[in-house]
């Protein structure tokens, strides 16, 4: 059951991610990304992180990506123009990505013997557990986030506002 679910949603994830790259229209890319994010939410559920799964949907799929589509709609962004881009970035970038992927995969496989398997029954983190740590040991970062969000609001307003209006 777990394996099947994992395979299905992992496939969704990858398909979404690849589609994100292949699509030339930003809105399609955005939708692919939403698919990735929603599938990830399911994977989080499988990993016993149910609060995160919901948060993933609410925050990422429901807020962040809405903003993206919103901007795409607002600016009426068209198809991506096919310009060649920086050759250097590609010449260095692709091998670098391959190397990173290879190294990480090797290391992960090598580490597997120290890691436990994941099954549905073990280790569901309840929201209470989460909040206990969040509001106790990690109170400072939590409070800090308020500053961060304040800055983000301030900045979004400052940047998106047209000059000349007060």
């Amino acid at each position: 059951m777990h394996l099947v679910l994992f395979l299905i949603f992992a496939a969704f994830c990858l398909a979404g991610a690849i589609n994100l790259l292949l699509q030339s229209h930003p809105i399609n890319s955005a939708l692919s990304l939403i698919v990735v994010m929603s599938s990830l939410a399911v994977l989080y559920l499988l990993l016993g992180a149910e609060f995160l799964a919901a948060a993933q949907i609410i925050v990422y799929a429901g807020a962040v990506m809405v903003l993206f589509t919103f901007v795409v709609m607002l600016l009426n962004v068209g198809e991506e123009e096919k310009t060649h881009g920086s050759r250097v970035a590609k010449v260095i970038g692709f091998p670098a990505v391959a190397v990173i992927l290879g190294v990480v995969a090797t290391i992960v496989l090598e580490t597997q013997k120290h890691l436990a398997g994941v099954s549905l029954s073990d280790g569901v983190t309840t929201t209470q557990d989460l909040s206990r740590v969040l509001f106790h040991e990690l109170l400072l970062p939590f409070e800090l986030t308020s500053v961060l969000i304040l800055i983000a609001i301030l900045g979004a307003v400052a940047l998106a506002r047209k000059e000349g209006h007060s």
Partner: peptide
């Protein structure tokens, strides 16, 4: 650590 190479990466 679980794996030294993990630390390195």
């Amino acid at each position: 650590a679980k794996s030294p190479s993990l630390v390195l990466i």
